[in-house]
Design a protein around this nucleic acid. Structure first.
Length: 851
RNA sequence: GCCCAAGUGGCGGAAUGGUAGACGCAGCGGAUUCAAAAUCCGCCGCCGCAAGGCUUGUCGGUUCGAGUCCGACCUUGGGUACCA
């Protein structure tokens, strides 16, 4: 063999795989199927190292499973709708469609040289009318099933640009373009009834045993089931129709510590009171700022005393004031609460600010009724002593206190125990162009009418302008005009488009029959679903995954997926990000200027530019264009080849953790692949009749490598698989084995490397006489007899500190091991004659002598 | 604010409650070379001449034994419902 030249071998093997149709997913009844999917990319225009890592990870799994004899589905597509395309159109002109499809072509061109085992015949983009038309069909099916409805919801409103803003476009409470203070405004919006499935989505988490525990926890907390008390206060001095005020609390045991009632600024009562200009002013104040939970929760707590009173349910002579408060959310519970400052920090801060009483209901077990300097909020499972309890024992846990309070309310008839969820219905309306049009029509006579399925897809118009802010569909001269599907009279189309999360909530199902004339074809879905291994970023732990779980249930309910696919992802793996150092200087005005890694020269003390300017090195952060800390995978592939890029991103960090890209790491990988290549050449030139001395050791090392790499890949520990491959390569380099044994070991090395570095693996496989393509060869198996050693080395600890070690037969009885250990001269020296209190022998692991 | 993670040599990291630092990078020493690159061999947590001591973000606890389990705290990252 000649030199290792990736530029030569990589295109050659990619062509060979194409010709063999090696990665075409086929329904093969003679094999078990395996569906591996990586979260599809947004077509930003350039692939980055995060993509390389994500898709290489999936590729390792796909190639490994194929070698294990599975019929593998490993598809690729594009999450192509979304804001960046519209922003590009606004900034640079051009059309979102051209921008998006141009980016897809570029990125496909960058991805193909990676040698991923993808079935490209199944590719689609969510902005293809063939895709979003099927999505519209499902929207209509869900509408018919009662899973879609309209209601009012708040959005970020930019009062200068007169447009709705995404949370991302609100910076410090101001619009990103206009810089005007943002307001919260109500709009009628379309919703999916995900809350119908709250209980199911929560309970089914228990069955997702191949999902990371942290993701299941985050989802469970997000869905947020709580048990509490709902009851109605009798009001005093409230407007007509508000004789009762319904509140919900998860701490009814603190009812005797109530010092006020509070309602959300969006509560119906607040809306009635808004007739008073003072109230209106206060509510307008509350509406300042954006809609994000982070902003709402961290905003300063403000309140307004309405003058209305409510009667305490346990004492009709005890009246509490009713306030309007900005920290009460209309979306949760009933939009009204009673405040117990003693045991809720927000209520405490509010009471302090407005001079409301603060009383303890319970104290820590054994403590006296103390003055509170902050709210006392122990875990509900902890026992406390109730000093103002009203139901049950004086000392009991919070949970018991709550249960007793609910029982008390139910027996006295002033309230009921209820279960509530934090999960809100999914608002899918977006006032934007580059998304899937919602297929309904507004008719003056018939109201809201679903579009007819035969009229789908409702396509986006091409002739739109982005010169002024707002939704181009709203101001299009004719697109809105249509005939009412019910009565035929002139009517207007809905101009809202769907949240792009809808697009990504079912693409995995579409991949099973990407050209079907219906959303799915059930025989294909039945064969390929579920996704056996889903891989993507931890940033999707809640929203994307929860929406997909809901959508799969909705697709089952509307007949588009089989029952078993109500949970679509059997196993989930969440990988970390690729990071890089940031290089910063400051311009004359003190503003930061960032520099690309290739423009940096490392110095002894840090880093500098070519002209000598000292550069500040900021520790690694997620690669982003604005910080310029990006390494272009294409330049790495040009310099070292795809195999080097693939190996490095898999080798340096555990896959669930962030990996820092370092130039030296990539070079080291390239050197290693060169060493493997040289080793392969050397073995290829060995005389056929060479007889070596270490055949048995080599066979053992080969078996160990097979075992170790297989275990590591199964456990998603690709960095450990690669460490094992380094060790095996070193062993092989030093070994003096017979030619046939060396060749066999080399072929095994090629097979074990193949999932990570498929091109060089094929070359080695072919050079060592492998039959057919390496990627189609059966995965090697380790002979168990070669994996066991006869002797083990046991460390000896004295009081938990390692002092000596002995080598003993693997199955030596503990008593004998003990005797040998105590006779060891180092042990005798460290014991210095002290009597042994206890000796612990863990067979095959360790000995600990306690004195 | 709330929810979820992570923190181990100069660096990336390894370690079913059982020898902390596998494997790799960087560094150091050597071989080869007229010289260098490349390649190969060896050393390599910290303090100490050594004996030995110290060491997994901080503090405390459980255990014969803790990087690993429990409690509190610190720092960093992800999410927070219209970024994808």
């Amino acid at each position: 063999m000649s030199r290792y030249e990736p530029a030569q071998i990589e295109p050659k093997w990619q062509q060979a795989w194409d010709e063999a149709q090696a990665f075409l997913a086929k329904r093969d009844p003679s094999k078990p199927k395996y569906y591996v999917l990586e979260m599809f990319p947004y077509p930003s225009g350039r692939i980055h190292m995060g993509h390389v890592r994500n898709y290489t990870m999936g590729d390792v799994v796909a190639r490994y499973k194929a070698a294990q004899g599975f019929s593998v589905l490993h598809p690729m597509g594009w999450d192509a709708f979304g804001m960046p395309a519209e922003n590009a159109a606004m900034e640079r002109g051009g059309h979102p469609k051209d921008w998006t499809y141009g980016n897809i072509a570029d990125m496909r061109g960058q991805m193909k040289p990676l040698g991923l085992s993808i079935d490209w015949t199944r590719e689609f983009a969510t902005c293809d009318p063939e895709y979003y038309g099927q999505q519209q069909a499902m929207f209509l099916d869900m509408l018919e099933k009662g899973l879609v409805y309209r209601k009012n919801a708040v959005v970020n409103w930019d009062p200068v640009d007169m447009t709705v803003l995404a949370n991302e476009q609100v910076i410090d409470g101001k619009g990103w373009r206009s810089n005007a203070p943002v307001e919260r405004r109500e709009l009628t919006q379309w919703f999916f009834k995900i809350s119908d499935y709250s209980e199911d989505l929560l309970n089914a988490l228990d069955g997702l045993t191949n999902w990371p525990e942290k993701v299941r926890l985050m989802q469970a907390n997000w869905i947020g089931r709580s048990r509490g008390l709902q009851f109605a206060f009798d009001t005093v001095g409230a407007p007509e129709g508000f004789e009762k005020l319904e509140v919900y609390t998860t701490r009814p045991d603190t009812l005797m510590g109530a010092s006020f009632a509070a309602i959300s600024p969006d509560h119906p009562l607040a809306k009635v009171l808004e007739a008073d200009p003072q109230v209106a002013r206060f509510i307008a104040e509350c509406r300042r700022g954006g809609t994000s939970a982070e902003e709402l929760e961290t905003a300063e707590k403000i309140g307004f005393d309405t003058g209305i009173r409510v009667k305490h349910p346990l004492d009709p002579n005890w009246e509490l004031p009713v306030w309007i408060a900005n920290f009460i959310l209309m979306d949760y519970g009933t939009g009204a609460i009673f405040g117990c400052p003693g045991h809720d920090q927000r209520d405490f801060d509010f009471a302090r600010k407005y001079g409301l009483p603060i009383k303890a209901v319970f104290v820590a077990e054994g403590a006296e009724d103390a003055d509170l300097t902050e709210a006392f909020v122990p875990m509900k499972s902890e026992p406390v002593r109730y000093v103002r309890g009203f139901a049950g024992a004086e000392v009991q846990t919070g949970d018991e206190g709550v249960a007793a309070a609910i029982a008390h309310a139910e027996s006295q008839g002033y309230g009921q125990g209820v279960t509530k969820f934090r999960l809100r219905d999914w608002g899918v309306s977006r006032q934007r162009y580059w998304g899937c049009p919602i297929p309904v029509v507004h008719c003056a006579a018939c109201g809201v009418v679903p579009e007819k399925k035969e009229n789908l897809p409702i396509k986006l118009p091409d002739d739109v302008s982005f010169d002024i802010p707002g939704n181009p569909l709203d101001r299009h001269p004719s697109w809105r005009d249509c005939a009412c599907p019910a009565c035929g009279a002139p009517a207007r189309r809905e101009t809202d488009t769907m949240d792009t999360f809808v697009d990504s909530s079912w693409y995995y199902a579409r991949f099973t029959s990407p050209r079907a004339a219906t959303p799915t074809s059930l025989p294909d879905a039945d064969y390929w679903m579920n996704v056996d291994q889903y891989i993507g970023g931890i940033e999707h732990a809640i929203l994307h995954l929860l929406y997909s779980r809901f959508f799969a249930r909705a697709m089952h309910a509307t007949g588009h997926l089989p029952e078993k696919s109500r949970e679509p992802f059997n196993a989930l793996f969440t990988q970390g990000m690729v990071t890089h150092e940031i290089y910063k200087t400051t311009d004359a005005n003190g503003r930061p200027v960032y520099h690309l890694p290739e423009d940096i020269i490392r110095t002894d003390s840090g880093a500098a530019l070519a002209d000598g300017t000292v550069v500040e090195v900021i520790p690694s952060a997620k690669m982003s264009k604005s910080k310029k800390n990006v390494v272009d995978p294409m330049s790495i592939i040009a310099a070292f080849g795809a195999d080097t890029a693939r190996w490095f991103v898999m080798s340096d960090s555990p896959p669930e953790r962030d990996v820092e890209w370092t130039a030296s790491g990539a070079e080291a990988t390239f050197k290693h692949l060169n060493r493997v290549w040289t080793l392969c050449s050397r073995i290829g030139e060995m005389p056929a009749d060479h007889v070596g001395e270490s055949d048995q050791d080599l066979r053992k090392a080969t078996a160990r490598a097979v075992h170790e790499v297989t275990q590591a890949i199964e456990g998603f520990a690709f960095n450990k698989a690669i460490a094992g491959l380094y060790a095996f390569t070193n062993t092989l380099t030093k070994a003096n084995g017979s030619t046939s044994v060396m060749k066999e070991a080399m072929r095994t090395l090629a097979q074990l490397m193949q999932p990570m570095v498929p091109h060089i693996a094929e070359s080695i496989w072919a050079a060592q006489g492998g039959v057919g393509l390496c990627c189609q060869a059966e995965w090697p198996k380790a002979d168990p007899a070669l994996l066991v050693d006869d002797t083990v080395i046991l460390p000896i600890q004295i009081n938990g500190k390692r002092r000596a070690e002995i080598s003993v037969a693997k199955d030596m009885p503990a008593a004998e091991v003990e005797k040998i250990a105590l006779a060891n001269e180092d042990v005798i020296k460290f014991l210095a004659g002290q009597p042994v209190k206890k000796i612990i022998v863990v067979p095959g692991r360790i000995i600990n002598v306690v004195v």
